[in-house]
């Protein structure tokens, strides 16, 4: 998995495949994302090609961080396999998902 986070932006763009072994990248992404202040956090997943259950679990941990920081969290643009995994696991009901 790769992510792109511009300076002081609270919008992160994920790409590639987000799986069990991406924990270190994920931790780095979440740490930097919540260093920003006073804005909804947006995780743009429109370029994410594949996710497994561990990746879904990590998105739930990002949601927990958002709650701790009193910040709204939006998942933007799931498509393909990622969208299908959201459907299978009813993730749409656990997150604010923007098409």
């Amino acid at each position: 998995m790769q992510f792109q986070l511009d300076n002081n932006s609270s919008i992160v763009r994920m790409s590639g495949e987000f799986t069990f072994t991406d924990h270190a990248q994920f931790k780095s992404m979440v740490t930097r994302l919540f260093e920003t202040k006073d804005a909804p956090v947006v995780i743009d997943i429109s370029k994410l090609e594949f996710i497994d259950s561990a990746g879904l679990g990590m998105l739930l941990l990002a949601r927990d961080e958002a709650k701790k920081n009193n910040r709204p969290l939006v998942l933007r643009g799931p498509s393909g396999q990622v969208k299908r995994m959201f459907g299978v696991t009813k993730f749409d009901a656990l997150f604010d998902v923007e098409e």
């Binding site: 259950s53 561990a54 879904l56 679990g57 990590m58 739930l60 941990l61 927990d64 995994m85 299978v88 696991t89 009813k90 009901a93 656990l94």
Partner: peptide
Amino acid sequence: EADGQIASGRGLSI
């Protein structure tokens, strides 16, 4: 599903 907080353990249901 009822919990909504569990970040793991979804593998078999998937």
